[in-house]
Amino acid sequence: MTSNDFEPPVADDADLPHLSDGQVEALLRGHRPADTAPGTDRAADLVHALTGPAVASELTGYRAAMTTYTDAFSMRTSSRPRRLLLLSSLLGARTLAGVAGSALALGAVGAVVLTTSALGPSHAPEALPLATGSTTTTAASTHAPDDADQSDDADESEKDGTGSGSATAAVGPDAKGPAAFGLCNAWAHHQAEAGTTATADTSVAFRNLAEAAGGEGKIAGYCANVPHPGNAAAKARGSHGSTPGSGGKGKSTKAPKPAKPTKPTKPHSSSHSASPSARPTARPRTSAPTPSLTTPSRPAVTVTS
């Protein structure tokens, strides 16, 4: 603080009262050390006076200091909101842009879903075969234990002529087995309605039936002895020529089936019956477009899920 460190000689150490280091520290803290020289107590009072109450002249700068402080901190607090405003505006713009982008994306997806649902009928064939396949598969599975289904498939492939060559040439319905009753039924219908258009030359099933009967001319006689599938005794016996059928309630209802004009669905049903794994995938796809057609708000649910 001083410009020069020149210290003029004040007095010799011999002239000064003796003070220990502890006494000096006590004096600097404003305490009165005990057993000291006469002037030491007054030095303690002097140190005490240095830290005495403030006078008015020492507080004159209070208002100026507070003005400086408030100006400095109000400027900081006023500049901070500006930065915050700028930051918040930037963040708001980014957020708004993000929300807008998300909304556009959702809208686009929703529009796609809506368009898909609106075009449902035209796109339905992609899903409907699965649905019909599933239903027919379910029906086939319920009827699977009965070999009459095989006769049905044989009938369909026989009627439309789209059956695979290997299947028709090699197998065909077994006219001596459980399919005999159905074959006979079909033969009887053909005989009554269309005459003899379906012969052994054109139909593998009829050829099998003729072979089982021992000739085309003996089909009527053979079929007269074919037992009804519902007859358990005839089933247990395993032969179809011994006892005539007594029932006819089960397979009689299936007799008109070969005449049903549902040719396009049958190949699907047969194919899907061979692959049961198609059922879980078919169920949601057939059910999903349906609510979107009725409730347009569903696409959003579909997207979010």
């Binding site: 004040v10 000064l16 009262p17 003070l19 002037g39 007054r42």
Partner: peptide, 15 residues
């Protein structure tokens, strides 16, 4: 140390 001793000496003389 010297400052306090000097002050004490002066105050003693003033007293």
């Amino acid at each position: 140390h010297r400052g306090l001793r000097t002050l004490a000496a002066r105050l003693s003389r003033e007293g």
